[in-house]
Design a protein around this nucleic acid. Structure first.
Lengths: 219, 219
DNA sequence: GGATTTGCCGACCGACCGGTCAGTCAGTAT
DNA sequence: ATACTGACTGACCGGTCGGTCGGCAAATCC
C-alpha cells in the first residue's frame, strides 16, 4: 500500500492503520457503539498496541475527528480558487461542494453527527479550526460579488453562504428520505439538484431591475 | 401531574415515565451511550420493570422513535392551515417550521441522528410514515402558488420545498457553529434568519419581469 | 556485545452492559 | 378466605467494555 521504505513505513504504518480503521468504524457507528477490540481487529493490531499509541479511546477519537476536520478544511480550501464569470464560479462552487460531501460520505457523516450530538461544546472548535477560514473566504467572495454588482447589495452575504451550504448539507443527509417521495426526482441526481439550487438562489441573489444595487456595474 | 384516578394512572404512568426518560436520554446521546440503568433511574422504576413493559432495549428505542415521529407528523400537519396572501402564508410556514424545530429540540435531534446513522434503512420508513404526507401537502401548496402566478412556473415545486426545509434544518443543527462566525449575526435570531431566508427564496421564486409566468396574475 | 529503547502482544482486571429470574405485593373476581 | 393476575423489585447472569501489565523481539546506542 505504502511506497515508503520499510523502516519508515513500519514506524508509522500501524498508527495510520489504526487511524484508518477507527475513522471508518466511527463514521459508521456512534462513539460508544465502536469498541477498541473492533478497531484493533480491523487495523490488524492488538488492542494493547492502540493504547500504546493513544492514551485512551477518547484521544483516539479526537485524533480521528481532527484528521477528518483537517481533510475537510483542506478540500474546502481548494474550492474557491476557480476563475471565470461570477455566476459560473458560484455555480461551480456549489456543485463541487456537494460532490465533495457525497464523495467523502464517511467523514461528512462523522462531522455532522458530532455536531448533532455535541454541538454546544464542539461548535466553537469546529467554527475556528475547521470551517472558519473557508466560510470567511466564501463570504468574502460573495461580498466582492456584491461590490461588483453581481449580487443584491441589501443581503447579508453570510446568510447567502449559509443557505447554499445548508441546502447542500441537507441534500447529503436527507437524500435517503427524499428519494422515496413521489414528487422528488432529483434525489439520485446531485448535479441536477445543484443546478436547480443555484437557479433558485441566483434569481433571488442576482441583481434584478427592481432591487437595489451598487452603481458600478462591472462585467 | 395526572388528573386521572389512581388505578388508571398507575397502569400507564410507569410506561409513560419510561418513555419520557428514554426519549430524553436517547435524544441527548446515542443509542449505545444510553444504558437501561440510566433510563430506569431517571424514570424512577427498576430496570427489570422496563423489561416487563418492553421486550428489549431495541424495542424501547423503537417505541421512542415511533412516538417522536408521531409527534413530528402531527405538528407538521398543523402548519399548512393558515390563510391570507400567498407570500405571507409562505413566510409564516417557514417561520413556524423553524420555531417548531427549535422548540422540540430533543425530538428533532433524535430524528436527524437516526437519519444520519441509518438513513438507508430508515429512509423509506420516515418518508412514508413521518414526512411523506406533509411534504406532499407542502408541495401541493407550492404548485398551486405556481398556477396562481405567485411562483415561477419553470421550477420544480419539490425542489423549492427541499431548499426551504433544508435551510431550516441546517440552521437548527449548525447554529452552534454559526454563532462563532464573525460574519454571522443571525445565529441566535431564528426570526431574522427566517425573514432573510424567505427574502432570498421569494425573490428567486416570486415572479419577476424577466422570468416566465402564468398569464393570469391573481391576488 | 551488553544495555536500553521501542513497537508490539497475550493475558488479565474491575466495571458495567443488556437481560433474566424468583418472588413480593396490591387489587379483584369468586 | 381463596385463587389468580399484572406491576414491580433486588439479586444475579454471562459477556463485553476500556484500560493495564509483564514480557518478547528487534532495532539502537554505547
Amino acid at each position: 500500500m505504502s511506497a515508503l521504505p520499510a523502516n519508515v513505513a513500519s514506524r508509522t504504518d500501524a498508527v495510520a492503520r489504526i487511524l484508518d480503521a477507527a475513522a471508518g468504524l466511527f463514521a459508521e457507528s456512534s462513539y460508544d457503539a465502536v469498541s477498541m477490540n473492533a478497531i484493533a481487529e480491523r487495523a490488524g493490531v492488538s488492542k494493547a498496541n492502540i493504547f500504546h499509541h493513544f492514551s485512551s479511546k477518547e484521544s483516539l477519537y479526537l485524533a480521528v475527528v481532527r484528521a477528518a476536520c483537517h481533510d475537510v478544511g483542506e478540500r474546502l480550501g481548494e474550492l474557491g480558487t476557480e476563475h471565470g464569470p461570477f455566476a459560473q464560479r458560484f455555480s461551480s462552487y456549489a456543485a463541487s461542494m456537494l460532490n465533495d460531501m457525497l464523495e467523502h460520505d464517511q467523514i461528512q457523516r462523522l462531522i455532522l453527527r458530532e455536531l448533532l450530538v455535541d454541538g454546544e461544546r464542539r461548535g466553537q472548535e469546529f467554527a475556528e479550526k475547521v470551517f472558519g477560514e473557508n466560510f470567511a473566504r466564501f463570504v468574502a467572495i460573495l461580498r466582492q460579488g456584491q461590490l461588483k454588482g453581481h449580487l443584491r447589495a441589501d443581503l447579508d452575504p453570510a446568510m447567502i453562504a449559509t443557505v447554499l451550504i445548508g441546502s447542500n448539507v441537507f441534500f447529503f443527509e436527507a437524500r435517503d428520505v427524499l428519494k422515496h417521495f413521489r414528487d422528488v426526482n432529483f434525489a439520485n441526481d446531485p448535479a441536477r439538484y445543484s443546478t436547480m439550487l443555484v437557479d433558485i438562489l441566483m434569481h433571488g441573489i442576482a441583481r434584478t431591475p427592481g432591487s437595489p444595487a451598487a452603481p458600478t456595474a462591472g462585467n
